[in-house]
Design a protein around this nucleic acid. Structure first.
Length: 482
RNA sequence: GGCGCUAUCGUCUAGGGGACUAGGACGGGGCCCUCUCAAGGCCCAAACACGGGUUCGAAUCCCGUUAGCGCUACCA
């Protein structure tokens, strides 16, 4: 264990897809730990599987991390660039006798594995190449026969104190002599990881608990390489609603999906943090700085958590209402522009009005898209009338028309377009007609927005302004009378 | 199959031997507020997997059972 020095952690995704929410959560915990305890958070791209790694995936990972605000210290480490060191480490192990050459071919291994399975036995490499005479090994190497390098697993037990779990122990007899270098000379995961983590001076390896069974192998490698061990922390998995490991068939699993769906990064992070960690007590809604402040290893969960999209949406709604309008604005504006409701310039021109609108709409929204969906009537020249709204609130066209006409007259006479006088005017109108105020408001709502639901009627009148409000009523009258 | 990890409401969790009639949140149901929808407030239903111990006393500690999940490649 390294103590006294600043902790160094890393997030090490393989670029074989998108940035997965599970990966994002692993990154988050690493990042939180580094921020909380004054350490370094590094990013390493594990691209040694050339068949599956793509530049596009690498870019997606960067984008996802940046959007989430999980920024890394120092430059990105590309594992593929460290081939020479990986090979040198393998050579070191070969020279010290900690590893040996194995000439068994994949086909042979496969056959033996199948045989073992058909006998219902656990397959484990039988070490037949381990005791090959030196002369034979040299002869076969000289003859150009392909070979892999295998690690010679010693006797005993390999164990460690996990930060999340307690002590975890594996009898070495259950670990086979695993391959560390392929026949083409490239490293296998466990070697590459250990070699890089040593080189990067990583002190805490925090990752998904699907790596628990790799850990004893890696510990053995650290020892054989003469390096000191990092502290291991194995985080629980995230499962889908069916209890299985989260995958594509569970729907949206990429961080980018949620970005496009209109979520706030702070909300996604808050939700992910609570999936596998608790600050203790009843605390739920947290900003990123608050999460850093509250973070501790004690609150880390051992049990896999199920990803519940409903709670995520609720949480996003909370964040939407909570963050400063100035912070919300730049996240909504691109969506407004994309929806062709307004140009960025128009929004800048009417900034105060625009911020007030956002404030009106966000309380009844769970996503940024919800806000955009409600924003139409405030920007567009023409609105569409929702058939259901028309059927319900303009049930009798003649009656609705008469009422709206009276409403228009009353509103037109209001000298000061403010809540108080507007409210007095409409309530007086209702009273004089012997109907409840709601009976006046609802047809007006449909005239103004074309919809059944909206913010409060006076808030809307003010937000739309006198001219647009009256114009909307005129158009409604045309539609009703026509 | 072998090895490993895990086990509190449907879900996320609080709880770290007596404060538990097991608390909060999402979701569900009801009520209030109210011009609609939200938001908010109040209330209801809903859990310690099972079996043994340890102890005066277990959701909390130990051991089994069961179940779920993960790993079991010349993938990462």
């Amino acid at each position: 264990m390294t103590t006294g020095t600043r902790p160094r952690l890393r997030f090490a995704p393989s670029p074989t897809g998108y940035l997965h929410v599970g990966g994002a959560r692993t990154a988050l915990f690493n990042w939180l730990y580094a921020r909380k305890f004054g350490g370094e958070f590094l990013l390493r791209i594990e691209d040694t599987d050339k068949a599956r790694s793509t530049d596009e995936s690498t870019r997606a990972i960067f984008e996802g991390m940046e959007w989430l605000g999980l920024l890394w210290d120092d430059g990105v480490v590309y594992q593929g660039a460290n081939l020479a060191r990986h090979q040198a480490d393998a050579k070191k192990l070969l020279d010290s006798g900690a590893a040996y050459r194995c000439f068994c071919t994949p086909a042979e291994l496969d056959t033996r594995r199948r045989e073992a399975e058909s006998r219902k036995e656990a397959f484990k490499y039988d070490r037949r190449c381990e005791r090959l005479p030196r002369e034979e090994v040299e002869r076969r190497v000289a003859a150009g026969e392909p070979y892999v390098v295998r690690f010679r697993v010693p006797e005993g037990t390999t164990e460690w104190d996990d930060m999340v779990h307690e002590r975890i122990a594996f009898p070495n007899k259950d670990i086979e002599d695993f391959v560390i270098l392929r026949s083409d000379g490239t490293p296998i995961y466990n070697l590459a990881v250990v070699s890089d983590d040593i080189a990067m001076r990583i002190t805490i390896v925090m990752r998904g608990d699907d790596h628990i069974s790799n850990t004893p192998k890696q510990i053995l490698l650290y020892r054989a390489l003469g390096a000191s061990l990092p502290t291991f922390a194995h985080l629980p998995m995230i499962h889908g609603l069916d209890g299985k490991k989260l995958s594509k068939r569970h729907g949206a699993t990429a961080v980018g999906d949620y970005q496009h769906y209109g979520l706030l990064p702070g909300a996604l992070l808050n939700f992910l943090a609570l999936l596998g960690w608790s600050p203790g007590g009843d605390r739920e809604i947290m900003t990123i700085p608050e999460m850093v402040e509250l973070f501790s290893v004690d609150g880390l969960q051992k049990k896999a958590a199920i990803f519940d999209p409903q709670k995520l949406e609720w949480m996003n709604g909370q964040h939407l209402s909570m963050i400063p309008l100035e912070e919300l604005e730049p996240r909504v504006t691109p969506a407004i522009v994309t929806a062709r409701l307004a140009t960025e310039e128009e929004l800048v021109e009417r900034r105060d009005w625009y911020l007030r609108l956002l404030d009106l709409l966000r309380v009844r929204s769970r996503t940024i898209d919800d806000i955009v969906r409600q924003a139409g009537p405030y920007f567009l020249e023409d609105i569409e009338y929702d058939p259901v709204a028309v059927a319900k609130s303009w049930k009798d066209p003649a009656e609705a028309s008469a009422l709206l006409r009276a409403t228009r007259e009353a509103l037109a006479k209001v000298p000061d377009w403010q809540t108080e006088p507007l409210e007095t005017s409409l309530r007086t109108l209702a009273e004089s007609r012997g109907i409840t105020a709601g009976k006046v408001f609802q047809p007006l709502r449909v005239a103004l927005t074309g919809l059944m639901v909206s913010p409060g009627i006076f808030e809307m009148l003010i937000q739309m302004g006198r001219d647009l409000s009256l114009k909307r009523i005129d158009k409604a009258l045309t539609a009703l009378d026509g």
